[in-house]
Amino acid sequence: MPATPDATREIAALRDQIAVPHRTDRPVLPFGVAAIDDQLCRAGLAIDAIHDVAPASSRLSDDAAATLFVGGLAARLTGVHRRRQALWVLTRSDLYAPGLEQAGLTSDRVFFAEARDDAQALALAEDGVREGALGAVVVEVRRAPMVATRRLQLAAAEGGTPVLMLRRWRRAATCPLGELSAAVTRWRIGSTPSAPLGVPGVGRARWTVDLVRQRGGEPFSLIVEACDDQGRLALPAAARDRAAAPERAVARAA
């Protein structure tokens, strides 16, 4: 039976709806970097969802990069236009607040909760999210069962508060992103050599940003320059715009 024009239009509208799993009028936080935003299905980080961030390896330097990535996001989520506070749920106390401040998350915008274990950390995060008064909730966990992440995802959608789940490595060989999760996006962050300066010194840090999985979109992988003091990422300058690299990299160390 041939479809009437009305029915065709209706079906097309329905197809559009299911093509994007979430309503597109929900608020998002754009990264401000076209290369990232264009590849995210909602052109930014969904505010009412949870996002997994894991270090690329069990090395502490990658862990620090992932922490700064999360810190920069939290800084922008609690920034001027939202005027909210961030809750950072810790299980280990090696976070250094002056370093976070240099990613834009100043001490008057974040407060911490020290949890005994992962279960308590997740429960605290859920409490913080359900209240709906926070700008962002960061929770550092080693293990998060699927059920807990789904609860958190529901709470985040209800409270309109983003949850950034910083997953730390438990064993050297097992990536924490191997676990199932209800997160909308899952990121893997690692540190990578910075652009050589023409003079002795360390340049702006660079990270490898892998979007391992996103709901309704394709994974991608990029190298970006680390957060500035407002939490903003940037793309490395194209090769022709860079300063010429010196002959021997080791010479810069001296």
Binding site: R83, A113, E114, D127
Partner: peptide, 27 residues
């Protein structure tokens, strides 16, 4: 004032883990 909203959240969190486990870092 963001702190007005915060008090309720803080109480709820403190009810779960106690007030001493909630803190802000000051210079």
């Amino acid at each position: 004032d963001p702190a007005t909203d915060l008090a309720v959240t803080v109480d709820r969190l403190a009810g779960r883990i106690g007030e001493s486990a909630l803190f802000r870092v000051r210079p």
